[in-house]
Design a protein around this nucleic acid. Structure first.
Lengths: 342, 342
DNA sequence: CTGAAAGCGCTTACAG
DNA sequence: CTGAAAGCGCTTACAG
C-alpha cells in the first residue's frame, strides 16, 4: 500500500540500496545481470525514486520558479505575461524542466520566496527595494530580475522602456496632438509619478522627454492611473474624457489598457483614430486584431523571457555572470494614431 | 557564504534545533523570550527553513502539478489551456499554492510524472491507457484526469462533449447544410476516427449521431485532421476546399482551428457565413472578437479547471472520493452559421 | 562490481 | 518550556 522505497527494491532484488541507486542513475556502475534484476524488482513493486529525497541529496530540484506580481488566476489571463512565459518555456523545454508559477503569498511576493523548492528564480516587475533584494539574496539562490531597475551585482533583463516611451509620445506629438491623456498604471504610490520606480519610471521618463522637446511638461498632460486590465483601461478613458479640453490623443502605458480604451471609445461612438488617437505599449498579439489595429511600442516580450531564462539557467549551472541586458524597443505604427491638423 | 541551516541558528541563539523549528512552525511552543532570541538570530543569519528538507520531513510539498500534453511553450499560447489554468489558479490562489507546469519529458508525459515534486496531479487530455494509469498510480499520489475517458476508481472531470458536438452538428444540419467538412484534430491514430478515444471520440460520436438523425453517416461528410493551432485550421480548410462538392459548412472540433479556417476563408475572399458556415468547439474568449463572431459550443473551461483543482485539493487533504464529474455544454449561436436554402 | 555508512536539513513524537 | 534522537528516502565518496 505504502510507496516502495529504495530499501524495498534492494531487499527484493537481494542487493544494497547503493546498487539500486546506481541502477537508476549510473547504470554503467552495475553489472548487466544485477541491473536487470534490480529493474525487474523495481517494476514489480512500482518503484521510482522519490523526487524530494533525491533533491535533498543532490541539492538540486531541476525546477525554476517564476515569481509573478499578481495572483496566478489573473496572471494566466495577462497576454504580456503569457508571452513572457512562452519565452521562458522555450528555454526550459529544451532541457525538459518544469516551471513553478509562484504568485504572491499573503499578498506579498516576498513571502512566497521562502517556500518554493526551486533552483533559481525569475522575478518579473518586482520593485527593487533593499528588503526584497535582501530576501532574495538570503535564499542563496540565483535569480534574474525582469522589468525592474537594474541592481548592481544582480542579473537583470529589461526593455529599453525610455526610448520606447519617447518614441510613442513623440509620434503622437509629431502628428499634431497637444491635448494628451496618459493612461498610467496604478502603482504602489498612486498619483506620485515623480516617485515611480522601474518600468513605470522609465516609461514616464520617456514621455516627459518627448514632451519637453515640444516645450511641454507633465503638467500639460492629463494623467490617470488604472489597473492593468481591459476594464481598467475603460475606466481610465472615462476619467480622461471628463477633462477639458478633452484629450485628442491617449498614450497608454500598456496595450491591455489601450485596448480597453479602444473598446470604451467604440461603445461611446468616438471614432479612433478620426476623433481620438490611441497608442499603447508592449505589442501583445491582440493588438493586431483590434479595430483599429493598435499603434504601439514593441518590446520582443517572448525574447525577453527566453533570454532571462537562459541567463538563469547559466547562473544555475555555475557559468555566466550577473549581466544587465537591455532589449531594444521600437514603435510599430498601425492604425490607431491619426494626424491632427491644427 | 553557505546557506545557514537550522543548526547554525540554534547555535547562534543558544538553543536546540527543535526550538528553532518550533519558533518557525509553532511559535506557541516556545517562550516569548526564546522566540525573540531565535527570530533575531535567524534574521541576522538570513535563515529560512529549506523547503526541500521540510518537504522531506512532512511528506508534503504544498504544490500541485499540472500535466499538459504539449511542450510548455505552446501550452502557454493555447487559449483553451490558459482558460483552464485560470480556473485551476482560482482554486490554488485561495490557499496560496504555487502551480508546477509539467510538460512532456523526452516526448512523453509519462516520464515527467516521476520527477515532479508535487502533492498531486491534474492531467489534461491524457489518453487513459492502462500503462499511463499504472504509472500515475505507481506514484502513489492523488490525481484527477481532465478531458479523458472516465476510469473506474479515478477522479475525472469532463465536459459533456457528445451532447455539445451533437448540438453543433444538428445546428448546421437544421440550417440546411448537407455538404459538410469536419475539421478534426490530429490524433495519435491519424485517420482512424473509429478508434478515437476520450474527448475526440465523444465529439465525433456526437457528430455522428446528429448526422444519423438526418439519415446521413460519417461517409457522407469530409473529414480532415489538423493540428490544434490557427495554422492547422488554415491548412485543414485548404484541404476541405479541394473536395467536390465543396463543403458549405465546416464543423471544427476546436475553436482555434475554426478561427484559422475563418482567417483562411477571409484571405480567399470566401464570405462567412454567406458562402460558407463555420461552427467551433470550446468557446475560447477569442471567438467573441473574430469576424464574424464564431458560433460554437461552450464548455465552461474555467469552471472545469476550478472544479478539477478543488477535487484534487480535497483528495490531497484526504477527504472526497474519486468522483466523475460531467459538465454541461451548450451551443452559443453567434454569427458564423447561416441558413442555407436548398 | 558491490556495499556500509555518512550526510542532505528539516520535523516531531517522546521524555524530562 | 526545552532538547536528544530518530526518521524522512535518497546519493555518493570511500573501501573492499
Amino acid at each position: 500500500m505504502k510507496r516502495p522505497t529504495i530499501a524495498d527494491v534492494a531487499r527484493s532484488a537481494g542487493v544494497s540500496p547503493t546498487s539500486v541507486s546506481f541502477a537508476f542513475n549510473r547504470p554503467d556502475r552495475v553489472s548487466e545481470q544485477t541491473l536487470e534484476r534490480i529493474l525487474a524488482a523495481a517494476a514489480e513493486l512500482g518503484y521510482s525514486p522519490d523526487p524530494v529525497a533525491r533533491s535533498m541529496s543532490t541539492g538540486r530540484t531541476g525546477t525554476i520558479g517564476v515569481l509573478v506580481p499578481q495572483p496566478l488566476a489573473t496572471v494566466v489571463h495577462n497576454p504580456y505575461i503569457s508571452e513572457f512565459l512562452a519565452g521562458v518555456a522555450e528555454a526550459t523545454d529544451s532541457q525538459d524542466l518544469p516551471i513553478l508559477l509562484v504568485g504572491p503569498r499573503q499578498g506579498s511576493i516576498e513571502h512566497a520566496v521562502f517556500d518554493a523548492a526551486v533552483d533559481g528564480f525569475l522575478t518579473i516587475g518586482l520593485e527593487p527595494f533593499r528588503p526584497t533584494i535582501q530576501l532574495l539574496t538570503n535564499r542563496r539562490l540565483p535569480y534574474v530580475m525582469v522589468d525592474s531597475d537594474p541592481v548592481e551585482g544582480v542579473a537583470c533583463v529589461n526593455a529599453d522602456d525610455t526610448t520606447g516611451a519617447h518614441e510613442a509620445m513623440a509620434h503622437v506629438l509629431a502628428a499634431g496632438h497637444r491635448t494628451i491623456g496618459i493612461l498610467g498604471i496604478r502603482s504602489p504610490r498612486p498619483g506620485r509619478w515623480e516617485r515611480y520606480v522601474g518600468t513605470l519610471a522609465r516609461r514616464m521618463d520617456g514621455y516627459r522627454r518627448a514632451l519637453e522637446e515640444y516645450g511641454m511638461g507633465m503638467n500639460d498632460v492629463h494623467l490617470t492611473e488604472c489597473t492593468v486590465s481591459e476594464e481598467g483601461g475603460r475606466r481610465g478613458l472615462k476619467r480622461l474624457l471628463e477633462k477639458t479640453p478633452r484629450p485628442t490623443a491617449i498614450v497608454a502605458m500598456s496595450d491591455i489598457t489601450a485596448l480597453g480604451a479602444l473598446s470604451e471609445a467604440r461603445d461611446r461612438g468616438i471614432h479612433v483614430p478620426g476623433e481620438m488617437s490611441v497608442v499603447g505599449f508592449d505589442d501583445i498579439p491582440e493588438t493586431r486584431w483590434s479595430q483599429p489595429a493598435l499603434t504601439t511600442v514593441s518590446q520582443a516580450t517572448e525574447a525577453k523571457g527566453r533570454l532571462a531564462a537562459r541567463l538563469l539557467l547559466d547562473l544555475i549551472a555555475g557559468g555566466a555572470s550577473p549581466d544587465h541586458i537591455l532589449l531594444e524597443t521600437r514603435l510599430v505604427v498601425r492604425e490607431s494614431v491619426d494626424t491632427r491638423s491644427r
